[in-house]
Amino acid sequence: MAKVLVVTSGKGGVGKTTTTAALGAALAQAGQSVAVVDFDVGLRNLDLVMGAERRVVYDLINVVNGDAKLNQALIRDKRLENLSLLPASQTRDKDALTDEGVAKVMDELREKFDWVICDSPAGIERGATLAMRHADLAVVVTNPEVSSVRDSDRIIGLLDSKTLKAERGEIMEKHLILTRYDPARADRGDMLKVDDVLEILSIPLLAIIPESLEVLRASNVGCPVTMNNPLSAPARAYIDAVRRLKGDPVPMTVPSDKKSLLNKLFTRRAA
């Protein structure tokens, strides 16, 4: 049975799209069949981060309106055949998404894939609530920064009240991915620590993604970070997150790109 996962945050620019692409790719790399769905109608970007921007023909709204079949709109990744993208529309606005239409598309996606990952738009408006509506579980992406934490708290409230699962009286499974974390700054007392954020938000931690150049590098070339450089610190963090999602108990670490002095002395440039 397919699992529908929403990647959400409230605040914009914290790494929802990066996380959607990275989790989707890592799940596909682990052999699962995965669809990543962009719900950010009017401001789509998942296509760009996935490197599929020139292959978009039909989009989510075309499928919702019945102008295109799901299969026509799904873009299969060129690097991983079990990874597909359903792009958002760039020209329409989010009011074009109907509740029934989205429900129908989600049902169809559930039949085809093991995992459906919905990239939520920022904010708490209709686009964000529609993206989370059908989810079985949620990943809340948060930066160690006051405005992001506050907005995440708000989104957690919505996950517990506005989703189908919550309305049925069930508990929505929620996980935190802390992005752009810098252990050195946290140690100096200049950045909220992991435990501070966990204490405030009270949801289980799925991964800590360290601040890294690799994230920008990956989006520059349109390749999810787990595929672009699987050994980089953020990629390892996302790959661990996926293992945890699949029920593997992986000890929590903050992966690092930094080499120790000894390593620097004795290794010539690793590929």
Binding site: R150, R188, G189, M191, K193, D196
Partner: peptide
């Protein structure tokens, strides 16, 4: 002075 504790308390 470390600013993170202030952030935590305010939040």
């Amino acid at each position: 002075r470390a600013s993170a504790p202030t952030a935590r308390d305010r939040l």
